[in-house]
Design a binder for these strands. Sequence first.
DNA 1: GTCTATAACTCGATAGAC
DNA 2: GTCTATCGAGTTATAGAC
Lengths: 202, 202
Amino acid sequence: MVNEEQTTEQLILSAAKKIFSTQGKDGSSMQEIADEAGINKALLHYYFRSKDLLFEKVFFDELQKFSPILKTAIASEAPLFEKIEKLCETYIRMAIDNPYLPVFVISEINKQPVVFIHRMFQNDLPDFYKFSMQINREVELGNIKPILPPHLIMNILSMCVFPFLMKPMFVHGMKIDKDLYDELMQQRIKEVPAFIIQSIKK
Amino acid sequence: MVNEEQTTEQLILSAAKKIFSTQGKDGSSMQEIADEAGINKALLHYYFRSKDLLFEKVFFDELQKFSPILKTAIASEAPLFEKIEKLCETYIRMAIDNPYLPVFVISEINKQPVVFIHRMFQNDLPDFYKFSMQINREVELGNIKPILPPHLIMNILSMCVFPFLMKPMFVHGMKIDKDLYDELMQQRIKEVPAFIIQSIKK
DNA sequence: GTCTATAACTCGATAGAC
DNA sequence: GTCTATCGAGTTATAGAC
């Protein structure tokens, strides 16, 4: 079961992931990916037939791994604050482990929203409605300060994901070096939910 | 001074803005832009010489209009809470008026960070250092709860900008129609700073 | 499975008629 | 100013040798 056999295909996939995620699909050429993988251009086609198929293989496989995790976190029956903590942790860890994913998602979702959402969730969208009801209930019970669910949900997603989209700005435009940046992202696993809860708790 | 004459050039610019901002520079073709504008491909070159020049005309002109506004808002001497309110209002209004800009900025900054930052701010970066010092001072004086400046700054930027990047997700993936979405964005001009201040105030 | 060579195609750009 | 037609560079994709 030991495999040097896996190597070429895996090599291509991780080279493609790197090139595609930094340059985007259209900004990448098969030649660049071949060079990054240290192999020949023709081999890419041998393994994946076309650029489109390679692209899909790389990203949708990855996204579909996360899709059920996200759905579970959002559908959870946990109390609100606990759920917010869990959601933030899920999103931020996902982005730390896959720093190219947020950029990919944003650019694809703005090109082909319907296609993308369908491919990602396959007719089984995360249940934001239920989450919204939970928020409304807590407001009505007087457990948290009044807030419309979409605003709270946007705030959660925003603070978890956006810093990864702006990484190059923080690294090049402010004086935050890469190690400090990584440390800040680790801190945000606790920092973000604390910030949110602080704002809505009574 | 009445001008049907302006039409073609303006038509091209707004068609280009639309195509470039959704598909990115590399993902857009001159043909698509010509089709969107309802004119011929050759005319694009007649007016703007090349794809690169058209692209730059569309976006950097636009960005440079905002660059000084942002710098001013960030450098302002106003008290912290007032400054946060002003910053959020500036960012969100900018995005409401130019819904394509955030997507453009994110995709460009992740492709060519150094080039992009230089072209946007021209060796005169916004003074986040001074803003950080202001935050630290307020923490030390005990006026706000302890928080590291980069986290607070990331939180502000995130909540202002990210919802515009995810618009297609909110519109297609949750049941938020376009009118409701626009209304929510208007509300965020007040909602976001209130949320932030609520979280850090003592 | 991996390579070289080349075919097929896309797209930005130009020439030239009107 | 606007169009049609076409060139040429660069890229995806395939044929075929090893």
